[in-house]
Nucleic acid binder design. Structure first.
Lengths: 119, 119
DNA sequence: TAAATATATGAACGTCTGTTCATATATTTA
DNA sequence: TAAATATATGAACAGACGTTCATATATTTA
């Protein structure tokens, strides 16, 4: 009884038609989260620099630290995040690990992002 | 004296040629930050849902709360962030404020992002 | 096999972020 | 003008995040 009308919205201003239609075509929870996760990964200055550097060349962790200005430990931590998001791949050559972009999605996203910035 | 050799890197593994070339073409600090800021803005599930809903229709705050599942207050806070990043615009009609996408950059970025997700 | 080197990782710490709750503002309606 | 409605905003709080420092792992070299 307490929640007899729980399915009725107490807000008056809703445009039912619009809401109904949007709801029917709405992005689902998982997709929204996956999308947010990629953008979240791209939403950090250090990672932006790492990815931008890798757009120019395959580089080892030391090199990445040098060009990004972050410590090697910080870079290593961030590279793990980029690996988990399947944004970079790596190959080991002795003691050294070389990182590179996994595909060209990053390039495309950067270009689109910069287009938004430059306006 | 203390920092007599401060410009010499104590790391041995650096590939000088690569680093030099990458440094010369590196993204600058401000651009990296601006880029990170957009992606950071897109890196939240609630904001993803709001933007996705607005891709489908112009909507008021109440409607956005209804379709996103967030409270009206939370939506209002997030809309401010989207406004600041110039991702959405709004028009007032009496008591009601209608929001819509400012341009189609969001659409493009979403599409690219989803392409990365679906692989 | 021991030392050196390159990278990775866990814990700790301060900062940032998103939500909630209370309240303020703006507009309409009675 | 007072009450109601739609939205906005500030403070507070919990949780997430990025860095640092110490340490572990992997590989090479002596």
């Amino acid at each position: 009884m307490e929640f007899e009308f729980e399915d009725r919205c107490d807000v008056q201003c809703i445009h039912e038609e619009n809401v109904k239609e949007v709801r029917a075509n709405m992005i689902n929870e998982d997709t929204a989260r996956a999308l947010a996760d990629i953008f979240k990964t791209l939403g950090d200055t250090t990672r932006i620099k790492l990815l931008f550097a890798l757009m120019l060349n395959e580089l080892c962790v030391c090199d990445l630290a040098a060009v990004s200005g972050a410590s090697e430990s910080a870079v290593s931590h961030q590279l793990r995040i980029l690996r988990n998001q399947k944004l970079v791949k790596y190959r080991r050559a002795g003691k050294i690990v070389y990182y590179s972009l996994l595909d060209d999605h990053v390039q495309t996203l950067f270009t689109q992002g910069l287009e938004h910035v430059n306006e």
